[in-house]
Design a protein around this nucleic acid. Structure first.
Lengths: 217, 217
DNA sequence: GCTTGTATTAAACAGTTGTTTAAAATAATT
DNA sequence: AATTATTTTAAACAACTGTTTAATACAAGC
C-alpha cells in the first residue's frame, strides 16, 4: 500500500495524533489502537518509538505546551516598560484566546487543562514548565498594580481570581455552550469577554491596592 | 459469613460507595468490581439492583446533588430582604465551602465538578437540577447590584467571573495544593478566600453598575 | 412443610486494554 | 551484491472490562 500523501515519518505523525486523541479523550480513555489507527501505523509502533503509552503521553504534553507558547507568544506582556494595567489586559487577552481557540492550537490547552483537572504522573513537569512561569508573570504584574508592600496572601488570592475567571471558560465549557453560547460564539465575543475580565479584575484589584504615594510611616 | 456490622441493605451501601468511587476515579475509570468490593457485595449486584453501571452513575449523581443541597442549605441567601451585597457574600461563602469541604460531603461536589469537566450523558439532568437554579439565584443578586437596566450580556459575564473565581479552587485544586497550599490549609483560610472573592467581586461589579438614583433621561 | 418470590453467589461470557513477540519488509552500509 | 541495521507487520499475550447465567441461599405466605 503506497501512501504518497503522508510523507511525515511515523514518529511525528504519532506525536501529533496523540495530542489530538489525548485532548479529546484524556489519558485513560484514549486507546493506543485509536491513536495508531488515526496515524495509519501499526499498534506496536507506540511501544517501538516511545517506550509506552505513558511515555507517549508525557511527550505529547511537552510538545503541546511548546506549540502553545510558539503560537501565542507573550512578547508584549513581557515588556516591562508598559503600564501594568495594560500588561494585565494583554495577558488576559492572550490567555483567553489560547484557551478558547477551537482550531488545532486549542487542543494544546485542552490537553493541559485536562491534565490539571485530572492529574497523572506527568503533572509535576507541567507545573514546572507551564504553570509556574505564567504564575510568576501574573504575580509580577499584580504586585506592580497593588504596590510593592502588598500582602503576599492577597497577591496570591488575586492571582487565583484572575486565572479563575479565565479558566472558567475552559473548565465549564460544557455548561457555557448550553446556557450562554452567545458569549463565545465568535472572536469578537471572546475579545469582549477578555476585556470584561480585565476591567472586572482591575476594579477588583483597586479594592486591595496599597496607597501608592505615601511611604510607610 | 455473618456481617453483623453492616446492617444497611446492599442497595444503599452500593449507592453510597458509588458516590465515593465515581468521585475519586470518574465514571469511566471507576470499575464495578471496585465499587462492589468496597460495598461488600457481589459483582452482579450492580446489574441486579440498578440496571447497569451507567444507571448507577446517574442515580449516584442525583443522590450526590440532593445530599449537597441538604447539607448546605441556601436559606439565608434566598432571603430577599437582605441587601444584595450581603447575599452575594453569603452565596460565595456557601458555594466555596461546598466545593472545598474535604469530608464526605466534599465528594458530592467533586462528583459534580467531574461531570462538568468531562460530561457524560448524565450532564443534561445535572444542568437542569443543579446548575440552572444556582445560576438563576446569582443572576438575580447581580441584577440587584448592577441595577435593573443592566445589560444582559454584562450580567452573564459577571456571573461567570464570580463562579470562575470559586470553581478555580475546585478545578485547579491540584495546582493550588502544590503551589499555594496555605490558601486552603484550614477552615479560616477558606473563609478568608471566600471573603476575598466577595470583596474582589463587589469591587469588580461596581465597574459595571448602572447609576441607580437617576432615572433614564 | 412446601411453595413462591427475592437475594446472593461463583463462574463464565464476550469484548477491550496495553504490551510483546517473532517474522517479514525495507533501508543503509560495506 | 551481500550484509547489516532499522522499520513495519500480524498475531498472540495476559490482564481487565461490564454484563449474564444458572445454581444456590434465604425469607415470607399459605
Amino acid at each position: 500500500m503506497t501512501q504518497s500523501i503522508l510523507i511525515e515519518p511515523a514518529f511525528d505523525r504519532l506525536l501529533q495524533v496523540a495530542v489530538e486523541v489525548f485532548a479529546e479523550c484524556g489519558f485513560r480513555e484514549a486507546t493506543v489502537r485509536e491513536i495508531c489507527s488515526r496515524a495509519n501505523v501499526n499498534v506496536a509502533s507506540i511501544n517501538y518509538y516511545f517506550r509506552s503509552k505513558e511515555a507517549l503521553y508525557a511527550q505529547a504534553l511537552a510538545f503541546a505546551f511548546q506549540e502553545a507558547n510558539r503560537l501565542y507568544p507573550l512578547d508584549a506582556v513581557l515588556d516591562k516598560g508598559l503600564p501594568p494595567e495594560q500588561r494585565l489586559t494583554l495577558f488576559i487577552g492572550n490567555f483567553l484566546h489560547k484557551l478558547l481557540d477551537d482550531s488545532h492550537l486549542g487542543l494544546y490547552s485542552k490537553l493541559i487543562a485536562r491534565e490539571i483537572a485530572d492529574p497523572t504522573k506527568a503533572l509535576d513537569e507541567i507545573i514546572e514548565t507551564a504553570i509556574i512561569p505564567q504564575f510568576s508573570l501574573l504575580t509580577e504584574i499584580i504586585q506592580q498594580i497593588l504596590g510593592a508592600a502588598a500582602d503576599k496572601m492577597i497577591v496570591k488570592r488575586c492571582l487565583l481570581s484572575i486565572f479563575g475567571q479565565c479558566l472558567m471558560f475552559k473548565h465549564s465549557r460544557s455548561i457555557i455552550d448550553r446556557l450562554y453560547p452567545e458569549l463565545i460564539a465568535n472572536d469578537p465575543a471572546i475579545q469582549a469577554c477578555a476585556e470584561h475580565i480585565a476591567q472586572f479584575s482591575l476594579a477588583g484589584l483597586t479594592r486591595f491596592a496599597q496607597p501608592q504615594k505615601r511611604p510607610i510611616p
